[in-house]
């Protein structure tokens, strides 16, 4: 057989939304935020684990993590969590076959699941944005 040229898109294929619709971007963002939250979780366990080393150890660790850089990082976790949680609920409902309509006879211009689902998608994203704003206010003004 003659030589074939590999053309599987790989990592960029799932990360880059290109000219596809909103759901495709949500797909990438869901995975990225998932990885971000996982990274935070591992760090969190390490940091809280410092308590075992006694109060001095704990205080010095907390001081190290009190820098503005980590503060911003923590806020990013809040944003990632808000998106991941709300989008996750949406995905659970969708994967149970809800909110995407029923099959029918296709006739042009076609109606399809993601198109029918778009208003629901937007509502969920508004919820996520609201959660982010509340989280932001809480994080920067209330929790001090």
């Amino acid at each position: 057989m003659q030589q074939r040229l590999k053309n599987r898109l790989g990592l960029w294929g799932w990360l880059g939304g290109g000219r596809y619709g909103l759901d495709r971007y949500a797909y990438s963002l869901h995975r990225l935020t998932g990885l971000g939250i996982l990274a935070y979780f591992i760090m969190h366990i390490f940091v809280t684990g410092q308590r075992v080393g006694g109060p001095e150890n704990w205080d010095s660790t907390m001081a190290a993590f009190g820098s503005p850089l980590f503060k911003v990082g923590e806020f990013l976790v809040v944003l990632a969590f808000a998106f991941h949680a709300i989008n996750g609920i949406r995905l659970i409902l969708v994967e149970l076959g809800w909110l995407i309509g029923k099959p029918g006879v296709p006739s042009f211009p076609y109606s399809y699941s993601t198109l029918r689902h778009k208003p629901v998608f937007i509502i969920f994203m508004v919820f996520a944005a609201a959660l982010m704003i509340i989280g932001g206010v809480d994080f920067y003004f209330v929790m001090k």
Binding site: Y20, G21, D23, R24, A26, Y27, H30, R31, L91, V94, E95, P103, P106, S107, F108, Y110, S111, Y112, S113, T114, L115, H117
Partner: peptide
Amino acid sequence: HFAGACSQVCPKGVD
């Protein structure tokens, strides 16, 4: 995971 790109590009409305 419901990226929906397949349904968007399908030329026959198969979804």
